[in-house]
């Protein structure tokens, strides 16, 4: 059937990369509650930076961290005006900024070659050892995933993580407790972006070719679907959900479709509907319902 060895290895690499991506969004959205739709852009920044640097001869061990750092810097710049925004506005502004970033990928032709993309990206290599085969790359990606996972777990259980969770539950209360909420949100945002940048680098060097269409907004929502299903803020759940969704997504490619149905569109349709259904049945999955309900009513009721 479709269970060929090569496909499975490929799938696992993709799962590992997406796992890192999902974990990074989980930190920003699941744990801290920042509805940031710019995430795919950081993925892209990491990918393009790492690719461009290595294509100019800079070793991957330098280029990849550079990608992470640049993604973090971009996040910082975007974050300065943005993190203090609330809910809907944060979502829309980050969406706008994410799309502007993609427009930059598309239009800064002299650097990124625009829609033609960057072909011939060298594979990742550490001090001469090149992760040339898919299996070798899987090892690299899996190790990165493991490292990121451990870091995320540590962050979650640390005092820092507790503040982030408090921000998600009730920002005003956290502020009242004397915590500099904006600074914590910024840190979460930047760290999440850097991790996404790491995933981007891994992606670029694995596939060997990137173009702006890899970093569309839809990707962020796919990740969102994953972290909601895995349980917002739950790292292990996020990784497991990544396995499920990436496998499902690839599986959809092989469903026998009449020629006139575009598989990518079908994917988007199925996952879009899935998200609708999930939100209808579990809207509190996004923010704890009890506190919000109480506060909403309290605003207009005295007694």
């Amino acid at each position: 059937m479709f269970a060929s060895y090569g496909l499975i290895v490929h799938l696992l690499v993709i799962i590992a990369i997406y796992g890192i991506l999902s974990l990074s969004l989980n930190l920003v959205l699941g744990v801290t509650g920042l509805f940031s739709i710019a995430h795919a852009a950081f993925y892209g920044v990491g990918a393009y930076t790492s690719a461009l640097l290595t294509m100019r001869g800079i070793p991957w061990v330098v280029a990849m961290p550079a990608g992470m750092v640049l993604a973090g810097i971009v996040a910082y710049i975007i974050g300065i005006p943005t993190v203090r925004l609330v809910g809907d506005y944060l979502a829309v502004v980050t969406l706008g900024l994410g799309e502007i970033a993609r427009a930059v990928f598309r239009n800064w032709i002299s650097v990124t070659r625009g829609p033609m993309g960057l072909p011939g990206i060298p594979s990742a290599s550490i001090f001469g050892f090149t992760f040339g085969t898919a299996e070798q790359y899987l090892v690299l990606a899996a190790i990165c995933l493991l490292v990121v996972y451990v870091i995320c777990q540590r962050l979650l259980s640390s005092p820092f993580g507790r503040v982030l969770k408090a921000i998600r539950e009730d920002q005003r209360a956290t502020l009242a407790l004397g915590k500099n909420v904006d600074r914590f949100k910024m840190w979460s945002f930047v760290i999440g972006a850097a991790m996404a940048g790491l995933a981007g680098s891994l992606f670029a060097h694995y596939i060997g070719f990137i173009d702006p269409s890899s970093f569309v907004m839809w990707l962020t929502f796919f990740l969102f679907l994953i972290i909601v299903l895995g349980g917002l803020g739950n790292n292990l759940g996020t990784v497991l959900a990544t396995v499920v969704f990436v496998a499902a997504r690839e599986g959809l490619r092989f469903v026998g479709l009449p020629d006139w149905i575009n598989p990518a569109a079908l994917q988007q349709f199925v996952f879009g509907m899935l998200l609708v259904v999930m939100t209808l049945f579990k809207p509190e999955g996004l923010i704890p319902a009890r506190k919000v309900t109480y506060r909403r009513y309290r605003q207009r009721v005295e007694g």
Binding site: F35, A91, N262, Q268, P283
Partner: peptide, 26 residues
């Protein structure tokens, strides 16, 4: 979702938009 957190409605509306776009594309 009217009584639910606003982010739930925002998410749904985004998902609906994707589903509609995809249906037309399909």
């Amino acid at each position: 979702l009217r009584a639910s957190p606003k982010l739930a409605s925002l998410t749904t509306s985004v998902a609906v938009s994707f589903a509609l776009d995809a249906s037309v594309m399909m």
